[in-house]
Amino acid sequence: MRVFLQEWKKIWRPGILVALLVSGLAYFYLFSNFYIEYFCNGPTAQAEFDLASEWVETYGPTMEPEERQALDQQLEEEKATFAQEIADYGPAAALGITTYDAFAAYQQAYYTAVQEQDGEADMETEQFLHKMMDNTNYYRITELENYLSAYDGKADTPWSQQEGFLSYTGEEQAQIQRLEDGSRGFLPDAVQFSTINYAKHLAIWSVLSVVLLLSPTFVRDRLYHTRAVQWSSRTGRRVWKVQLAAGLCGAVVLTLCNVVLYAIPFVGKGPLRFWDCPLFHWCRDDYTWFDGTYGQYLLVLVGMVLLLGVAAGGMTMFLSQYSGQYVAMLLKAIPLFLVVGVLAGGFLLNRPYYFRTIYLGDQAVPVPPGGEAILLGSLILLSVVLLFWACRRQNRREL
């Protein structure tokens, strides 16, 4: 244990910790912070988020047919609120707009006229429309209307007759119908989009931070000829295995710290209220290969980030032992980060376990069910094999 703690101190040096902190802050504000600052990007996304938050509190994580009927009353109440909000607005009254339906009709007539006039818009009318939309509950009403229209359309139309259903493979169609037989969820698109992209940047940073932390591990020993002293006895030779254990533990601890630090601003945006909501959105055409909840999906994403960090740690230590100076290790660390972090991490955390395709040239190739788990498992296996081979090679070396 004493040797482990000594190796642990060699990894967690103050200089590298400062470098990680500065680099982490820069990376967060350059890439990740966008998905926090614009968690619900736009008034439509914000309206969907607000409505879904209210429905979770009122109806629970799903919207069943008997609960859907109450939304008609909510729509009428929202329209009544709209009428109250424009009651004292002079330009609207002058045009005879006293209700939401009147405003929608005026808006539709204007856009139709613009199309007939080859897209030439009237700026005063445009300003009037946007002022009406931005200062009323217009977006809540339109989002609610869209949801009710899509909900009823899905309920009244068999899957075999729904647009786009036949474009899926037989396996995908069967999965869609299995999901449809379950709960009718309404998880907002903005939550899914921000969660997945935020997790993707977390994965990339976790790989980069692990590579930065562990790259000097064996290089420093070679520079100070520490290995030669250790090889002078069989007991000292076993230190290398302790270093591997300390390095892998360091990769786990650093990745967990990244997850916790990233979770603080993310949780502050309020997505955990949808923890029990199913990923399957009754009114959207975006499906997963497994029937889970948003909370379960978050745990899966955290697990993927953690395993990717461990795989990167193992590969970094393997490459580090073959570098006699820091420049040489840097030349190995950059390709490692690009392959494991940017390419593999970007692919793994890009809507994992959803129906999706990758493009090989002009050829679209569907990602098979569980393809992400296969790739992640392969990276872990490769890391283990490389470290196991390195251990055998060390044991066979002459003193």
Rank of each mutant, 00 (worst) to 15 (best):
residue 356 R to C: 02
residue 94 A to E: 13
residue 91 P to C: 10
residue 369 P to E: 15
residue 319 L to A: 08
residue 246 A to P: 03
residue 162 Q to W: 05
residue 152 D to N: 07
residue 278 P to E: 04
residue 250 G to K: 01
residue 383 S to N: 05
residue 276 D to K: 02
residue 40 C to K: 08
residue 359 Y to W: 14
residue 203 A to H: 03
residue 270 G to M: 07
residue 122 D to T: 07
residue 139 Y to R: 07
residue 84 Q to E: 12
residue 34 F to P: 06
residue 396 R to M: 08
residue 157 T to V: 06
residue 82 F to I: 00
residue 87 A to P: 06
residue 26 A to C: 03
residue 399 L to T: 14
residue 364 A to E: 11
residue 106 Y to W: 11
residue 108 Q to D: 15
residue 62 T to C: 09
residue 379 L to W: 02
residue 42 G to F: 06
residue 354 Y to N: 02
residue 154 K to I: 14
residue 176 I to L: 00
residue 288 T to H: 09
residue 10 K to A: 14
residue 250 G to D: 02
residue 245 A to V: 15
residue 216 P to V: 01
residue 366 P to C: 06
residue 144 L to P: 02
residue 378 S to K: 05
residue 323 S to H: 01
residue 134 D to N: 11
residue 165 F to L: 01
residue 161 Q to V: 05
residue 170 G to F: 09
residue 187 L to V: 06
residue 62 T to W: 01
residue 350 N to A: 08
residue 21 L to M: 05
residue 320 S to W: 00
residue 274 F to M: 04
residue 203 A to Y: 00
residue 223 L to G: 15
residue 177 Q to S: 11
residue 61 P to Q: 08
residue 179 L to P: 02
residue 371 G to Y: 11
residue 355 F to K: 03
residue 323 S to Q: 03
residue 125 T to R: 11
residue 254 L to A: 01
residue 103 F to I: 09
residue 185 G to R: 02
residue 97 I to F: 01
residue 177 Q to A: 14
residue 268 G to Q: 13
residue 202 L to S: 07
residue 200 K to I: 05
residue 247 G to E: 00
residue 197 N to L: 12
residue 8 W to I: 04
residue 142 T to S: 08
residue 314 G to C: 04
residue 231 W to S: 13
residue 333 A to N: 04
residue 320 S to M: 08
residue 191 V to L: 04
residue 156 D to G: 07
residue 378 S to H: 06
residue 393 R to G: 10
residue 250 G to N: 05
residue 168 Y to I: 08
residue 4 F to N: 01
residue 57 E to F: 12
residue 50 D to Y: 06
residue 222 R to I: 12
residue 344 A to M: 15
residue 177 Q to H: 12
residue 12 W to P: 04
residue 61 P to K: 10
residue 268 G to W: 07
residue 218 F to C: 04
residue 157 T to E: 09
residue 38 Y to M: 09
residue 194 S to D: 07
residue 262 Y to V: 00
residue 296 Q to I: 05
residue 359 Y to D: 15
residue 183 S to I: 14
residue 93 A to S: 13
residue 19 A to P: 02
residue 193 F to Y: 14
residue 285 D to T: 14
residue 168 Y to N: 09
residue 223 L to M: 15
residue 174 A to M: 12
residue 215 S to R: 02
residue 265 P to F: 03
residue 274 F to E: 00
residue 292 G to C: 10
residue 346 G to L: 05
residue 303 G to D: 13
residue 258 N to Y: 03
residue 151 Y to S: 02
residue 343 L to P: 11
residue 203 A to E: 06
residue 54 E to V: 10
residue 43 P to G: 07
residue 15 G to K: 07
residue 348 L to C: 07
